[in-house]
């Protein structure tokens, strides 16, 4: 009965709601669709001086390459500009960051959830303050020592820095997931004679995976999307995808090169697309987990 009443709306309200939602969907989705389509054109079509519909039909593309669609941008980015190397670096960085932050984070988050002492709360507040620090302010603290100690430019340096920057968030999120696992579970294991670590290892680890997967997704996103750390701490040879795309921009004024950047942008977005496709539910639950529990 309840839903009947709720769903009876005046037609005007319905139009407003549908209009709003439709406008939002177009605003959110169209830019990606447009760029994806445009990445298979030449620059003269994607940035058309004459008529924007050229980008739809590929008029210049037809003239310049003989086909309506062209993979020139992708060839230029991946082969000529060695974007594959950046993609490889990104995979190394991202996988390492996710694995290390989750290992440290589950241990810490578990301890924070089970402690019940006042200092655990203080640590969480400290983590919140750390979370608020703009990353670039931290980076300006690293650069000079890293130069002095010859740590600058290497992938492991960037990885450990991103793990650290990621920790406050990881701790908060895993802490709230562990709070949801009943205390009785590990405590009864300890009554049976397990040490705290054994209880964690044999009782908690098997049931914690949903929380860990969700937290892992967000660690992945942080590492994958980072520009500040990777752009300042990595040498040219070790560049990951995002700073590589940024450096394309500096050298793209000549004809054709902008399309390299467009192709690289689409290539770098594709994995994220797949990620949402498979993990939409976890992402949504992760975003709300922190909020609902305060």
């Amino acid at each position: 009965m309840m839903s009947d009443i709720v769903h009876r709306r005046s037609p005007l309200l319905n139009i407003i709601i549908w209009g709003l939602v439709l406008a939002w969907i177009v605003a959110a989705g169209f830019p990606f669709l447009w760029t994806l389509w445009g990445s298979f054109k030449v620059q003269g079509d994607f940035f058309s001086k004459a008529d924007w519909t050229n980008a739809l039909y590929g008029v210049r593309t037809q003239i310049e390459t003989g086909g309506v669609l062209t993979g020139k941008g992708y060839h230029g980015a991946w082969v000529t500009q060695e974007f594959w190397l950046a993609a490889l670096n990104t995979s190394i960085v991202v996988v390492s960051v996710v694995v290390i932050s989750l290992t440290l984070g589950t241990l810490g988050g578990y301890a924070l959830a089970r402690s019940g002492k006042k200092y655990a709360f203080y640590l969480l507040i400290l983590a919140l303050v750390f979370r608020a620090m703009p990353h670039i302010t931290l980076v300006s603290g690293y650069l000079l020592p890293f130069f002095e100690w010859n740590l600058w430019g290497h992938l492991p340096t960037a990885i450990i820095v991103m793990v650290a920057i990621n920790q406050p968030f990881t701790l908060w999120m895993l802490h709230s997931f562990f709070l949801n696992i009943p205390k009785d579970l590990d405590e009864s294991a300890m009554v049976d004679g397990c040490t705290r670590f054994q209880a964690f290892r044999h009782v908690i680890v098997p049931v914690m995976w949903p929380g860990v997967v969700t937290t892992g997704l967000f660690s992945f996103l942080l590492a994958y999307n980072d520009f500040t750390v990777t752009a300042t701490l990595l040498s040219q040879a070790n560049q990951t995808m995002v700073p590589k795309i940024a450096s394309f921009l500096g050298t793209t004024q000549t004809e054709g090169n902008v399309m390299f950047a467009v192709a690289a942008v689409v290539s770098a977005t594709a994995p994220l697309f797949v990620l949402i496709l498979f993990f939409q539910r976890q992402i949504v639950s992760g975003l709300t987990a922190g909020a609902v529990k305060g």
Binding site: G108, L112, A164, P168
Partner: peptide, 13 residues
Amino acid sequence: FILPSLITMLLFI
């Protein structure tokens, strides 16, 4: 339990 996480945060934040 908290040590590894705490060390990275102290060192790098």
